[in-house]
């Protein structure tokens, strides 16, 4: 953290070096956010902040800046506003950064965004005027200099800007060098893509340590066998280990008739898998926290809290 200033709880925690937990909320194609707000309220006691996604997979959802603002206001939970460079040009994004600040947002996660061709409005123009590194640079310029393109901003925005990184990326070296660029641009934290492979994660985090960007490890606790299987099948580049899938399948069959017991068993199994995983990385001093990407599974947070507090 440069300059040791903090504009948000997340910023404060990163300055202090607290080991933190962040969550993720995925607003959908709706103008009513009551479900997401409910979920946000459930995770609020455990997380420092939660990401609010920006039309993931290029599927149109409610705008992430509006959703971030409403969630922050209604659920009393600080958000990490995900902002992709897919849909808006540089001029528009600069305006959104000021707008986001005015709406009370203080953390922004710079993302490229899934291509429009993947989503449900493929005829839309893919913008990508900026990229995930130049967006970080733009935010830092506005925050640190109070200027945009050399022009004074009357009341400049205050934000902490983060980026993403993918330990599963192959070739890994290309991904590492790219993270170097985001660090140079001024990224203040990094959330990783979901990981299951400990060896690879250690290698990756060790490599990027030189950039001195605090890392929040992306994990995906699996609420059920169906979700684990779906994740394994549909998320490209990430595979759920076979033994995990087998264990989750076992839970599904064993507690077929007792849903309550089944839930407890899944929660416990997540605890048992992620606890040593996270502990190992912490022991090696590679992490600043954990970012839980499992949406619609807020009941897992007490267990995760237990993991990060021990």
């Amino acid at each position: 953290m440069e300059g040791n200033h903090a504009y948000s709880k997340l910023g404060e925690a990163l300055v202090k070096g607290d080991f933190i937990l962040t969550g993720e909320l995925e607003p959908e194609k709706t103008c009513d956010l009551s479900h997401t707000i409910q979920e946000a309220k459930e995770m609020a006691p455990y997380v420092v902040a939660a990401n609010v996604t920006d039309s993931p997979l290029g599927i149109v959802t409610i705008n992430s800046m509006a959703a971030s603002h409403i969630i922050q206001r209604e659920a009393d939970l600080e958000v990490i506003w995900q902002l992709t460079v897919r849909d808006v040009n540089k001029l528009g994004i600069a305006g959104m950064i000021m707008g986001g600040h005015a709406l009370g947002l203080r953390n922004v996660l710079s993302l490229t965004g899934d291509h429009t061709a993947l989503g449900d409005m493929p005829e839309s123009k893919p913008v990508f005027d900026l990229d995930s590194a130049t967006l970080v640079k733009l935010v830092r310029e506005m925050v640190d200099t109070g200027k945009i393109n050399g022009h004074e901003i009357e009341h400049p925005p205050k934000f902490h800007v983060g980026c993403a990184g993918n330990p599963n990326a192959e070739p890994m070296e290309a991904e590492i060098l790219k993270i170097g660029r985001k660090a140079e641009a001024g990224a203040e934290f990094l959330q990783t893509q979901v990981v299951y492979d400990l060896e690879r994660t250690i290698e990756f985090l060790t490599e990027i340590k030189k950039y001195k960007v605090p890392v929040l490890l992306g994990i995906f606790p699996m609420k059920s066998y169906g979700i684990a299987k779906g994740f394994d099948t549909f998320v490209p580049g990430v595979s759920v280990p076979k033994d995990i899938l087998a264990k989750w399948k076992g839970i599904k069959t064993e507690y077929k008739t007792d849903k309550k017991m089944q839930k407890e068993a899944y929660d416990q199994a997540n605890y048992e898998f992620f606890k040593p995983f996270i502990r190992e990385l912490r022991k090696k001093n590679l992490l600043s926290g954990v970012h839980c990407m499992a949406v619609h599974y807020p009941r897992v947070f007490p267990k995760l809290m237990e993991i990060i507090q021990t």
């Binding site: 993302l111 990326a169 991904e175």
Partner: peptide
């Protein structure tokens, strides 16, 4: 993109 590769 000017700074790739992306997460895709």
């Amino acid at each position: 993109l000017m700074n790739g590769p992306c997460g895709g």
